[in-house]
Design a protein around this nucleic acid. Structure first.
Lengths: 108, 108
DNA sequence: TATATTATTCGTACTTTTGCGAACAACAAA
DNA sequence: TTTGTTGTTCGCAAAAGTACGAATAATATA
């Protein structure tokens, strides 16, 4: 057991992954990525959970940097944070795209 | 609020993402992907956590399908589950690669 | 048989997540 | 000013996640 902590890179990808680690949040991201209008109410309509819970999930996605929101009184409009979305895309592609050890000694 | 639950696809990608949602598990996956020998002890040496905790994280990764393990008495050898790894790679690429709405009405 | 090695499981403590309804805040409209 | 609309925050409860040391299991070795 080393005393070396995790790298920034590891923390960062885990942060993105964690934010995507709930079907409601995947559904939200999918919806936002496909819609022109992204009001809270529209999102809530799409999901099988109470508005308080939707609000919570949106907050987490915002804190993870995957989405952003702005007030358009009396509504709130959400959308994908494109910059961080691209970052996440690259990080997951690199991470999952790395060469997997294919040596025989590594399981069968 | 609809009463429609989440799709299989949404559940599945969330499941993978959740498994990747902790830096220790990212570290484990990275290590396994890069190593020829993947014994429990080697993994434990790389991480700043107790062996009981390592074992727990390995269990979660195994249950999510991202890794597999086999006993090689008296050790246990772990490795990436290549098939599911490829599935995950494809799912994340599709998910993050989808076209993001670029219309002006969708935030600024 | 006793001992050593390796990793999992158990028991426990604490924190975080998920979810809900109710209360609240912000603002426009009557 | 009162009322209505829209979302967030609060307070709570239940469940899941994280972490550890100790106990255990499985098997090889002395």
């Amino acid at each position: 057991m080393t005393n070396r902590k995790y790298s920034e890179e590891q923390e960062k990808i885990a942060r993105f992954a964690k934010a995507m680690g709930h079907p409601a949040r995947i559904a939200i991201l999918q919806f936002l990525a496909s819609q022109e209008s992204c009001f809270f109410g529209d999102i809530h309509e799409e999901l099988p959970i109470a508005k308080a819970t939707v609000s919570q999930h949106l907050k987490e996605l915002k804190e993870a940097g995957l989405i952003q929101g702005e007030i358009e009184t009396p509504k709130v409009k959400y959308c994908i944070n494109r910059e961080n979305w691209e970052t996440a895309k690259k990080m997951f592609a690199d991470f999952l795209g790395q060469n997997i050890c294919k040596k025989e000694s590594c399981c069968k």
